[in-house]
Design a protein around this nucleic acid. Structure first.
Lengths: 214, 214
DNA sequence: ACAAAGCCGTACCGTACGTTACGGTTCGCA
DNA sequence: TGCGAACCGTAACGTACGGTACGGCTTTGT
């Protein structure tokens, strides 16, 4: 029940197809889920016939778009050999800041909205894809860091998943739900950095090993 | 920019109208946002003409439904005169458990989904209503408790809003976004109680006054 | 150079659904 | 008892949009 099942793609797309999906992304940000196939065709300067040939139907187009965006976001894992308290803190802050900028981006908000809409309308895997490339992907990337921190004697926890979920909560707090519900909430880079630092400080206060260094 | 603006209602509804809105709620849970006016009329055993006379149009019906549910959920504030460490912890756990059962209820998930969908589709206040009666309402009810805890020397923080958002994050973590995206995640009462206790313990670890009691 | 394939733009089709209209029935009230 | 208002059930209307068909243009391969 982990990632990799829903992430097998983003490639085998021609440049033209990527252009089309980028147009869908822009349209999704502007119009939300009410985008029409006609609007997509006009924006992407392609025919509807081509859309249907390439992506099957409307859901196929949305699915391809979500996968395409996911493949663009996928970042490298933070695995370093030398981990001290300073490096751990910096890495955690990096994760937190990155996550906050992702969830507060217009693209992420739009994609989560459409995925949530579809999750409410019967059988659909858009939600699973977004989940696999959001919440789950960040978890898979962060957990090795947490365990490395524990191996280095810097952190103390028994269950990695639980520790990760705490970090997730401390970082995200109410940001995502507020944005999804339409709350105006412009996060500047400075605020993101501050929030990331605060969340990291709180996380370390909860999970720093008693015998660890400062 | 606080509540009370979007909450002026839930009343001046006849019993028959409440029945209709309850039917909408049930239908919303079953069908999601794709519910049709015809389906509502059939389920509620009323005519479409009546629906339009009472609620104006489809959006009016949804808005009335969201307000009606909000008016049902509104709970009393936790204000007690005698607050010691034990009572504070119990109250926080109560808030946390209550919040977790709300956001994991099928009704809340359905309503948040439709509100989020509409927030993505142009001008709409469904999101604002849900926000005002969810995230903001719980904040308004919890903040007095936090400040009472501070006044009693049990808690230490400078900004109430920030402290509340931390508590919010520790309690909710990834639960709401996972449920909204369609993740199967059945929370039993026992798990909710456990999670509420854990979140409260972590919150107190972060915000307990240095000079306070155990 | 020419045929075949791919694609653009547009017109077209079918359906679902929001909204309105209307005949028939019930209920409150004088 | 009779009248009007409210309401139910259903039929009908108009539109928006997903999906398809087709004529013409461009590219590719031989």
């Amino acid at each position: 029940m982990e990632a990799a099942i829903e992430t097998n793609d983003g490639e085998e797309l021609t440049e033209r197809q990527k252009d089309v999906l980028n147009a869908v992304l822009r349209l999704l940000v502007e119009e939300g889920d009410r985008l029409t196939m006609t609007a997509v065709a006009r924006r992407a300067s392609c025919s509807k016939e081509t859309l249907y040939k390439w992506f099957g139907d409307r859901d196929g187009l949305l699915t391809a778009t979500v996968r395409w965006q996911a493949s663009k976001v996928r970042a490298g894992n933070y695995d370093r050999q030398h981990l001290d308290a300073t490096a751990l803190r910096a890495s955690l802050e990096g994760f937190a800041a990155n996550w906050l900028s992702v969830i507060s981006s217009r693209t992420s908000i739009a994609l989560n909205r459409v995925a949530i809409s579809h999750a409410g309308s019967g059988e659909d895997n858009l939600g699973a894809i977004v989940l696999a490339n959001g919440r789950i992907a960040i978890g898979e990337r962060l957990k090795p860091l947490l365990e490395a921190g524990r191996d280095a004697g810097l952190l103390d926890f028994s269950d990695t998943e639980t520790a990760f979920r705490t970090f997730f909560g401390l970082v995200g707090r109410d940001v995502q739900i507020r944005l999804l519900l339409g709350d105006r909430l412009e996060l500047t880079d400075a605020e993101i950095g501050q929030d990331a630092a605060d969340a990291t400080r709180q996380f370390l206060a909860l999970y720093r090993a008693k015998t660890g260094a400062a």
